[in-house]
């Protein structure tokens, strides 16, 4: 651990302030709690909200996994994992099952999360109504009155124009029948995983200074219409590495003629399946 800094970098008073915000966020599912976000030694927009949440909950007994785009080895995930290894001296892992805390940017792991785990999302823009109404005073009023008609109008305009809801990620949800919430920029493929998730989901937006939460087992409904029900994307292809036909696939351009291949975005899930397959072949 690096000298001169407190455990997990943040001072105790800051942690208390963030912990109070996390508790209120958990008590009011989907509501964005303002908090006095601190400057972190990593840039705003690069996960400072998630880092502050993780730093405030993490203890010596925890095992941390950090992913970006589903992968443990993307540079920003490596950088954040190193930050906690240095400032908190905690165990880290790439295995979803072994982690007690998973900090993520843009994905929910394919391996189902279990009771007792905490998933921490890095959030760039927490306000689901922001593209419809840039003013905080106004969006706050809309949340206070659950006045979400404008969002339905926007989705309906999509249908009129494109024949479907033209939102592929950060697809808006309603939490416990009350608060409209951004699930962070996860693909809508991951939205159903949030519904009644056994793990606790915490969302941190550092630059925008908001924390929100979805407690375990809480209903999370993706917005839709009766005649245009919510649907997730699927692929005709399978993962070229592990053969999975049910995971979120990244499309990779493999040569100058533009040939593509598809591989799992969740590197731990993919390598686990490959290990199992090679084990079966060896046996």
């Amino acid at each position: 651990m690096i000298a001169g800094y407190n455990f997990a970098y943040l001072d105790e008073q800051t942690k208390r302030m963030i912990r109070r915000a996390i508790l209120k966020a958990t008590a009011i599912p989907g509501y964005q709690v303002p908090f006095a976000s601190r400057e972190m030694p990593l840039p705003y927009g690069w996960g400072t909200g998630g880092i502050q949440v993780t730093a405030s909950i993490i203890g010596r007994g925890d095992t941390l996994k950090v992913i970006d785009q589903g992968a443990d080895d993307t540079t920003n995930a490596v950088s954040i994992r190193r930050f906690f290894a240095r400032t908190a001296g905690v165990r880290t892992t790439e295995r979803t099952r072994e982690a007690s805390i998973i900090q993520t940017r843009h994905r929910i792991p394919e391996t189902p999360l279990r009771e007792g785990q905490i998933i921490v999302f890095q959030v760039p823009i927490p306000e689901p109504l922001r593209w419809l109404e840039p003013r905080e005073r106004e969006t706050r009023r809309m949340h206070a009155h659950a006045d979400y008609g404008a969002m339905y109008v926007k989705l309906y305009e999509d249908i009129a124009r494109y024949g479907r809801i033209a939102t592929g990620y950060d697809y808006p949800v309603v939490v416990n029948g009350r608060y409209l919430m951004r699930p962070s920029p996860i693909p809508k493929f991951d939205n159903p995983k949030l519904d009644r998730l056994p793990a606790l989901a915490l969302f941190g937006a550092g630059r925008e200074k908001r924390i929100y939460a979805v407690p375990p087992h809480t209903p999370v409904k993706s917005l839709d219409f009766e005649d245009h029900p919510f649907r997730v994307e699927s692929w005709r292809e399978r993962c070229a590495l592990c053969g999975s036909g049910s995971s979120f696939l990244d499309e990779i351009v493999v040569d100058d003629s533009g040939r593509r291949m598809f591989v799992c975005s969740d590197t731990d899930y993919c390598s686990g399946r490959r290990a199992k397959r090679s084990g079966a072949e060896a046996a």
Binding site: F7, S56, I57, G59, A213
Partner: peptide, 17 residues
């Protein structure tokens, strides 16, 4: 640092469940 973290996780756990 360690004790308040452990206590906080207990509080978070019972509040979340």
């Amino acid at each position: 640092a360690a004790e308040s973290q452990a206590a906080f996780r207990t509080l978070l756990d019972v509040l979340a469940r």
